[in-house]
Design a protein around this nucleic acid. Structure first.
Length: 603
RNA sequence: UGGGGGAUCGUCUAGUGGUAGGACAACGGACUCUGACUCCGUUUACCUAGGUUCGAAUCCUAGUCCCCCAGCCA
């Protein structure tokens, strides 16, 4: 008996030298593996650019063992759900000696724009993927294939597989039937080939108004699969397209365009989400007919479906994201609270974290909900290894060291990274007055509390042990300063450093050289796991505390942080210098995610 | 009440007739100048009911529950 190794790739580096997490096996990888083992796609030819059977036949054998594609519609920004699909498609192609095409599915000019195209390209690149293979740049657009799609439609008409329907939209809907009742044939269904040809040509030439005619595939109005009841494949839209301008006034429907895009591009595995499962029958029907007509060569691309990502505490529906942006519930598409990739980037999330996340959540066909904490944890894992440590006091209160000589200062060394001594050290300036965290003092300590309270000792991190002696309060009873005395022979790194055993550790920044800075504390966008569950308006579930701006006191070295540099503020979490609002010499920080806190959890 | 899918530890996910495995979480402990990290240990699962079989998560039968489909959106 042989033990079967799970399909798996060891961790390694990608072409740019970046760490790539191990990729776990899944049902799609199994399919690719078995297709490859059978040599299913070995005989395909590739002409170096998308084309029909004749064009590809003239080219050499396809150097890509498989081709996948990531086909976003440029009608919004990419979000975390897309990251799953991107990692899946580009990851499989990379691991099996293939390539993944980035293709814009821009068949609906009224909703799409170049702004979205640009942001999508930027996000996919940021995630660490590219579409170069051999000498080819596999960056395509559905709109680049409009001419071919038109010729395919003409071929369908010639073979009696498509007809021009002149019913109104309402009539078409009424005649479609229902889930349980068959549809009725259109009165225009049996128009002759010549008439269809003529009408379709005139549709293309702009002789008709929007909505007056459509081109339909002629399949079966009684099919139990509604998608096969003569689906519409072309509609008239006198609209300006961001790529083709006013060249076209008829535009193909997704269901028709997508299989053709795949076939033109020699895609082997066309991987999409579960809601397209019912479309597969039409996908196969269409490509089969076009292969019969000699337009495409077998083996044809095949569609496979996986479950889309559901993530708690956010919304991933394009409609809702657009609404949040347009109604200004957030500050634009790259608001760090948003689950867009642009927002996640600004928030400080990392490509490595996302790739790790994709591996961790896996791929299957069962509906599943991933908890936001999984994503946060993936980010912590990468950030913990990568981010240099710094000190930041987010809710400052003054600590006065009463026995520390007035005017005296001394430099204390702090390592930049506890796990990477090669990253060196920096100096923190100790002085009589330092900022500490308001939380690090309790006049009356709760059970288990081991930081500053009268009579207790704690260590000022990287500096001295101090003994808390009390506090000053204003007339309302608010603590305005904490007092302590320090033990001069307890300095970190000195021979006497370990003679005092204390449990508590308090971070601090000298009052005299602190960098007073705006810091945004981000939290989850929604306060419930499933915003808008049931019929509830999802806006009601928005977390009002998802963004909190504080005036923090940071260690002075942070003044030099360049945009998008990530740090751990010790004992707080991971922070990034905002890539938009930071000024030279005056960075602003965003909290990416807090550190785990088993103390807070126990309370 | 049509069609297409899905159901395995708390969560995600392997496992297609031969010891139900992994990850994360949880819990307990160790370590710690971050209540972090790390390390060690523990708990917990095959939707139900029948059947076939020496043996069933896997095959068969009948159910149950969940998701998707009636845009000239994708």
């Amino acid at each position: 008996m042989s033990v079967k190794e799970p399909a798996q790739n060891a961790p390694g580096k990608d072409t740019s030298g970046k760490e790539v997490p191990a990729t776990a096996g899944n049902f799609l990888r199994n399919i690719v593996e078995s297709d490859l083992a059978q040599g299913k796609y070995a005989s395909r030819h590739w002409s170096g650019r998308p084309g029909d059977a004749a064009q590809h036949a003239a080219g050499p054998l396809d150097p890509a063992r498989i081709r996948t594609r990531f086909p976003p519609e440029p009608n919004g920004y990419l979000h975390i759900g897309h990251a799953k699909s991107i990692c899946l498609n580009f990851g499989i192609a990379r691991d099996f000696g293939g390539t993944c095409h980035l293709r814009f599915d821009d068949t609906n000019p009224e909703k799409e724009s170049q702004e979205y195209v640009n942001s999508i390209i930027e996000s996919v690149r940021w995630l660490g993927f590219d579409w170069q293979f051999g000498g080819d740049t596999n960056l395509y657009s559905a709109s680049g294939y409009f001419e071919w799609m038109y010729r395919c439609a003409a071929a369908l008409i010639e073979h009696g597989h498509a007809y021009v329907d002149s019913q109104s939209a309402d009539d078409i809907r009424m005649h479609r039937g229902t889930l349980t009742e068959p549809g009725k044939n259109s009165p225009f269904r049996d128009r002759g080939i010549a008439e269809n040809r003529d009408l379709f040509t005139r549709m293309k030439n702009g002789e008709f108004a929007d909505g007056t005619h459509v081109l339909r595939a002629k399949i079966d109005m009684a099919s139990p699969n509604i998608n096969l009841r003569d689906p519409i494949i072309y509609r008239i839209r006198h609209a300006h397209h961001h790529k083709t301008g006013d060249t076209w006034c008829i535009y193909p429907m997704y269901t028709y365009a997508h299989p053709i895009e795949d076939a033109l591009e020699n895609i082997t595995h066309s991987i999409c989400t579960l809601e397209f499962e019912d479309q597969r029958a039409f996908y196969d029907w269409l490509l089969g007919k076009l292969a019969d007509a000699g337009f495409f060569a077998r083996p044809l691309p095949q569609q496979y479906e996986f479950a889309r990502l559901n993530l708690s505490y956010v919304v991933l529906s394009k409609r809702k994201l657009i609404q949040l942006v347009e109604e200004k519930h957030v500050d634009g598409w790259d608001d760090p609270r948003l689950p867009t990739l642009a927002g996640a980037r600004r928030r400080g999330f990392t490509p490595e974290g996302f790739r790790n996340f994709a591996v961790r959540i896996g791929v299957s066909k069962s509906d599943s909900w991933i908890d936001m904490s999984i994503l946060e944890d993936c980010m912590r894992e990468h950030l913990n290894a990568e981010a240099e440590r710094r000190i930041g006091v987010l809710d400052p209160v003054k600590l006065i060291v009463d026995n520390y000589p007035e005017g005296q200062t001394e430099a204390c060394e702090a390592p930049n990274h506890p796990l990477k001594p090669e990253l060196g050290k920096r100096e923190l300036l100790m002085s009589r007055e330092v900022w500490i965290e308001r939380d690090d003092f309790m006049e009356v300590p709760s059970k288990g509390y081991f930081r500053l309270f009268p009579g207790n000792r704690a260590r000022l991190r990287y500096a001295f042990i101090v003994e808390c002696t009390g506090c000053d309060k204003d007339e309302n009873g608010n603590v305005i300063a904490v007092h302590c005395t320090y033990l001069p022979d307890s300095r970190s790194g000195s021979p006497g450093a370990d003679q005092y055993k204390v449990k508590g550790n308090v971070h601090w920044v000298s009052v005299q050289d602190a960098y007073s800075c705006e810091v945004r504390l981000y939290d989850r966008l929604f306060s419930v796991p499933n915003p808008g569950a049931g019929d509830r308006d999802f806006l009601l579930d928005l977390n009002p505390n998802a963004k909190k701006v504080v005036r923090a006191q940071l260690e002075p070295s942070l003044r030099k942080a360049s945009p998008e540099t990530r740090f751990q503020f010790e004992r707080h979490g991971y922070f990034v210098a905002d890539r938009v609002d930071s000024k030279s010499g005056a960075p602003i920080f965003n909290r990416t995610v807090t550190l785990r806190d088993s103390w807070a959890k126990g309370k």
